[in-house]
């Protein structure tokens, strides 16, 4: 399901016109946020302190990441260990298979723990790649405008009008299966939203005083884009990124439903839910438990995203 709240938000801000406080027009006092590297990030983290939701979300994400990283030490079994003698063992807390086993007798808890690796990677990588491509092109198009911008805009219109799932199915068929191809297929269109958002934001920032000032100081276009404009637009992009991450993980399960997911030897939650759906009538846990793992992570990502929005949004900061 495509959620486009952020894009809409920026649309809406523009629509409210220049007489209200928006990101588009430089608001006195916050007109320029320069790069500050790590301090910037830690500053944001510090401000998140007042958002209990974001803190809980952050800890949940941390727990997932720890699970993913130390999977071999945490998981009680190997995720691919086939044990045909004990297929469909129901979950019993405290037993050898606390969350039960699947159709091949594999331990579901271990698969969920290992599955965190793929699912988190799918989310992080697709969003990161889409973001880099989209923001990069968006900066150039928004800053220079002109014919490049026109061509890109037509091209992205075209991509947006092309149904996403059809695009991904086709791309997977062309590329063949495999983890990296999956990432690539998901990125094919994922960047467009980031492109749109960053382009619009750049265009609104371009005329602002600090950019004029930098230009007057004789800074190069590249330097202005990277060190002047980017820090000012990165926040809304980050927020869109956190929202997209959950979508991408769910998308993997849709592809798996259509038989185009990651290879079965690499456990991924999406594929686990989609394979397990066949056994909903006789073994509900096979599909439901990995699904819950997914829900909790997406929830956590979104809570952090929500917190980030509150912290980074200058309008709310003023209140």
């Amino acid at each position: 399901m495509s959620v486009n709240a952020e894009h809409v938000d920026s649309l809406k801000r523009r629509s409210l016109g220049s007489d209200t406080y928006t990101l588009d027009t430089p608001v006195p006092g916050i007109s320029r946020r320069p790069w500050s590297g790590f301090r910037n990030i830690s500053g944001i983290l510090f401000k998140l302190k007042n958002h209990p939701g974001a803190i809980v979300g952050g800890f949940v994400i941390l727990a997932y990441v720890i699970c993913a990283v130390f999977a071999p030490y945490i998981a009680p079994h190997s995720p691919g260990e086939v044990a045909l003698a004990k297929r469909f063992v129901p979950p019993v807390i405290g037993s050898i298979n606390p969350l039960g086993t699947d159709q091949l007798g594999r331990d579901i808890l271990s698969r969920i723990i290992y599955g965190a690796r793929v699912s988190i990677l799918v989310g992080v990588l697709t969003v990161a790649i889409s973001m880099v491509i989209g923001v990069g092109l968006g900066l150039i198009a928004g800053y220079y405008q002109g014919s490049f911008d026109k061509i890109m805009s037509r091209f992205t219109d075209l991509l947006l009008a092309f149904p996403y799932l059809i695009f991904v199915i086709g791309a997977m068929s062309v590329l063949g299966p495999g983890f990296w191809n999956l990432i690539l297929a998901l990125c094919f269109k994922g960047w467009v939203e980031f492109y749109r958002l960053s382009r619009a934001e750049v265009m609104s920032q371009k005329a602002s005083e600090y950019v004029e000032a930098a230009r007057a100081l004789g800074r190069t276009d590249g330097a202005i884009m990277i060190s002047e404009i980017l820090p000012n637009i990165i926040h809304s992009i980050l927020v869109l990124g956190t929202l997209r991450m959950g979508n991408m993980i769910v998308m993997e399960s849709s592809l798996s439903f259509l038989g185009l997911g990651v290879p079965p030897s690499i456990p991924a939650w999406g594929s686990m839910v989609s394979d397990g759906r066949r056994y909903m009538l006789n073994a509900w846990w096979v599909a439901t438990l990995p699904g819950l793992a997914l829900v909790v992570l997406v929830l956590a990502i979104n809570l952090v995203g929500e917190g980030l929005r509150d912290v980074l949004d200058p309008r709310l900061k003023e209140n």
Binding site: F38, R39, I41, S42, G43, L45, F46, K49, G58, L62, V65, I66, A68, V69, A71, R117, V118, I120, L121, V124, F179, I266
Partner: peptide, 24 residues
């Protein structure tokens, strides 16, 4: 202190990402 803590967390996240990545 808070800044130190969050810096630690950030570093941890980055480290974790690298580990997951190489592990996979």
């Amino acid at each position: 202190k808070d800044h130190g803590l969050s810096r630690c967390l950030t570093a941890l996240v980055v480290l974790a990402a690298i580990l997951v990545f190489t592990g996979l």
